[in-house]
Design a protein around this nucleic acid. Structure first.
Length: 150
DNA sequence: TTTCTTACA
DNA sequence: TGTAAGTA
């Protein structure tokens, strides 16, 4: 069973924390204008993780998600103030989702000839592991397999 | 080409 | 917020 461990997975750059975007990219990805992004920054709603010298703003993955949510609520007809408030509530949920996936995915590899994602131990005794694979009809199929079988 | 700040609509 | 101007 040739599994790629978490370390290698991270080295491949699959962690969202490593993604960085410039203002124009955030704008095209979210639909928000660069003007809005700079305005929101002046209001303390968002902030770039850094500035390339004294030039371009650089945003992280978290900000991309946040901007996407604000834009979403704005498009629903909410005021900026309301959109930001609704976003704050959703951010908690998003962090949980992200963390669970980030910590949960232990590795990737081949199981019984098929590509699967290793989600780590399934039980308290660490005798079984949970795997998941893509299933065209049902979306995702989960597999619980005894560690001894590997 | 992209981003930046400033300023006016 | 959009847009124009003049830069870096």
């Amino acid at each position: 069973m040739a599994f790629i461990n978490k370390h290698d997975l991270l080295k491949k750059g699959l962690q969202a924390e490593r993604f960085k975007f410039r203002i124009g990219e955030i704008a095209t990805m979210t639909g928000a204008s660069t003007r809005q992004l700079r305005y929101w920054e002046s209001k303390g709603i968002i902030s770039p993780i850094k500035r390339e010298g004294d030039e371009a703003r650089v945003y992280n993955h978290e900000t991309y998600i946040k901007v996407s949510m604000i834009k979403h609520f704005l498009d629903e007809g909410n005021s900026l103030k309301v959109a930001v408030q609704q976003t704050k509530e959703l951010e908690k949920i998003w962090r949980t989702v992200h963390d669970v996936i980030s910590v949960g995915v232990q590795g990737i590899g081949i199981l019984d000839g098929e590509e699967v994602v290793d989600f780590g131990y399934f039980d308290e005794d660490h005798k079984q592991r949970l795997y998941a694979k893509r299933d065209d009809k049902q979306g995702i199929k989960y597999i619980v397999k005894d560690v001894a079988d590997n």
